[in-house]
Every structure is written in C-alpha cells, then in structure tokens.
C-alpha cells in the first residue's frame, strides 16, 4: 500500500478524500502536520494588535474621515486649475503678440499711402540697385 504524502493530506483536509494509508508511520505524519497547521491557526501577531488598538481608538476619538477621496478631489482640482492657468498664460502671450503686430500695422497704415505706380517704380528701382551691385 502507498504511504500518504502531503498531496493526500491536502486532499483529505480540503476535499474530504479518504487517506490511502492508515499505518503508524502515516498517522505520525498526520499528527505532525496537524500540529503545524495549528501554528498558523493560532497566529496572533500581538505587536500589531497593540498598534491597531491604539490607532482605532485614536480614530474613534477623532473623526471618521476617509482622506483618500479628499486627496483625489484636491489633486484633480489642482490639475484642472493648472491646465486652465497654463492655457491662459499661453493665450495672453498670443494676445500680447497680436497687440504688437496690430500696432505695427496701424503705424504702417497711418503713413501717407503711395499710389500704385509710385510703389512699382520704387520696387523696380530697389531691385535694379540690387542687381547692379
């Protein structure tokens, strides 16, 4: 007959499958495993309990406030305002540039306007001068 192994023990405990062997050696094995199993069952972690108790009592004394959604909301607000402010800065730069260009245009149009022929002659003269050089 085949002696039991840990797989058989797991099947026995979890799936209620019968054990393939019940000899003294196998019984000893099971006894040892049962003792080991108790170790985790009785796990207490006392250090953590003391810390936990203190923290819970502090929470109960204070407020039931979950900070996570508040942080998330604040973060999203900062993000939205950040984007808005950044886009406004860009926009204001554009407006400033536009103002500058507009003032240049205005200055140009305030000058006495030349007639078409006069403008052409000036253009040709300039070009001829460049070619001569």
């Amino acid at each position: 007959m085949k002696h039991i192994n840990f797989d058989d023990y797991l099947d026995y405990k979890l799936m209620e499958k019968p054990l393939p062997c019940s000899c003294d050696v196998c019984q000893k094995k099971i006894k040892l495993w049962e003792e080991e199993r108790e170790k985790f069952k009785k796990f207490e972690g006392n250090l953590f309990f003391k810390k936990q108790e203190k923290m819970i009592l502090e929470k109960l004394g204070g407020k039931f406030f979950n900070l996570k959604p508040v942080i998330a909301f604040a973060f999203s607000l900062i993000l939205i305002f950040g984007i808005l402010i950044f886009s406004n800065i860009k926009k204001s730069n554009k407006i400033e540039n536009f103002d500058l260009e507009y003032s240049k245009l205005q200055a140009f149009y305030e000058k006495p306007i030349l007639g078409d022929l006069e403008a052409c002659s000036i253009f040709f003269e300039n070009n001829l001068e460049k070619e001569d050089i």
């Binding site: 840990f6 797991l10 040892l32 495993w33 080991e36 170790k39 985790f40 796990f43």
Partner: peptide, 15 residues
C-alpha cells in the same frame, strides 16, 4: 517569518 512560522517545508511552501 511571522506569517510563515512552520518548521515543516510542506507547510512553509503551502503558506
């Protein structure tokens, strides 16, 4: 070690 207090390797591996 606190969560895995076993001496038996089968239990150590299991946990």
């Amino acid at each position: 070690e606190e969560i895995n207090p076993f001496e038996d390797n089968n239990f150590k591996n299991l946990n």
